[in-house]
């Protein structure tokens, strides 16, 4: 015990000396962007998209960037204030859960531009909200599923019921009702962003019910559903990025979302002084979402019908996506 203490004491002194010597002041910089993520940046889904968007700002727009991952709800206020105090020009919070904190802090720092992705908080001044049009994307993928199912049973696997996934599912169900009224959509939630095994089991439970097309949305849910369909004839629709590699033989399409496109768009507006604290709804029309390549299973006639729907959505001819955004 005595020796242990002596060793530790040495550690104390050395470390204290070094720590004391390295406190450093932050200099305010013009082109700085900071981002808050509620999960890890390498989740392969929602948060990673945002991370890639931030990297785009760094590499293509020459921003100095900072990132905080795994942000807990209790820390929202202070982190936002922190970045604002450090002279970050753009502060991006990635998720619906940041709404209250953004509203408060945006009032306190009128010169900083705040951006919420996946939420609706905006103040017509310096707080801007961006929503992916999950519902239209759900609708478009739903059309494909409706036309591809042979058993007339389609499965949806979600992670946690957050608004964007919910809206996606509502749009999807609307499309199936519109294009194949005989088909039934069944929905499952795993309640976890990280439990891949449960995502797989949820999909397997659906397959046991006769489902032959599955769309998944939410990190572990995507991984799990893809694992479940691999080696079967069940078709897979991915979300957030082109998920062909998740299940190469089953993948028929993915709804690709580009946070990079959104951020570049908003920051360009911001630099031009045109960002006015609005709610931006971005999707197929704005190029923030698009379909990946179709799988070889999808016949030409079906591709054309789906692409027609995409065009109709872009042209504003279809506007009812089951009530969501």
């Amino acid at each position: 015990m005595k020796r242990f203490s002596i060793i530790l004491l040495c550690v104390v002194m050395v470390t204290t000396a070094f720590v004391a010597g390295c406190a450093k002041k932050e200099e305010p910089l013009a082109k700085k962007a900071a981002m808050l993520l509620s999960g890890p940046a390498n989740d392969g889904g929602w948060n990673q998209l945002a991370y890639e968007g931030l990297m785009t700002l760094q590499n293509e727009k020459g921003f100095e960037v900072a990132l905080t991952e795994n942000v807990k709800q209790a820390d929202h206020l202070q982190l936002l204030r922190n970045y604002a105090n450090q002279g970050y020009k753009y502060i991006i919070a990635h998720g619906y859960e940041y709404g209250d904190a953004l509203t408060t802090v945006a009032e306190e720092f009128p010169k900083v531009t705040f951006i919420q992705i996946g939420g609706v908080a905006h103040n017509n001044k310096n707080l801007n909200a961006v929503l992916f049009t999950s519902a239209e994307a759900g609708y478009i993928t739903g059309v494909l599923a409706a036309l591809m199912t042979k058993t007339n049973k389609i499965g949806l696997v979600g992670a946690v019921e957050i608004p964007s996934i919910k809206a996606d599912f509502e749009g999807f169900k609307k499309a199936v009702a519109d294009f194949n009224p005989n088909a039934r959509v069944i929905e499952a939630w795993t309640g976890s962003w990280t439990d891949i095994a449960k995502g797989k089991e949820a999909a397997l439970a659906q397959i046991a019910q006769g489902v032959d097309v599955i769309m998944a949305n939410g990190d572990a849910a995507n991984h799990g559903a893809a694992e479940a369909v691999r080696g079967t004839n069940v078709l897979y629709i991915g979300w957030s990025r082109d998920q062909k590699e998740y299940a190469p033989d089953n993948h028929i399409v993915s709804n690709v979302q580009s946070v990079s496109a959104i951020l570049v768009n908003l920051v360009d507006k911001g630099e031009a002084g045109e960002l006015k604290g609005e709610l931006h709804i971005m999707g197929y029309k704005e190029g923030a979402q698009y379909l990946s390549e179709f799988g070889p299973q999808v016949p030409e006639s079906v591709r054309q019908r789906v692409m027609q729907v995409v065009q109709d959505v872009i042209d504003g001819k279809i506007t009812d996506f089951g009530g969501g955004q």
Binding site: V19, A23, A74, D75, N85
Partner: peptide, 25 residues
């Protein structure tokens, strides 16, 4: 590591905002 710990320390108690956040959490 020393730089990292410096930031850790600064982040925990470096100014009033951080100190109060530590208290709140």
């Amino acid at each position: 590591p020393l730089l990292a710990y410096g930031h850790l320390l600064r982040g925990a108690v470096g100014n009033l905002g951080q100190l109060t956040t530590t208290l709140v959490s």
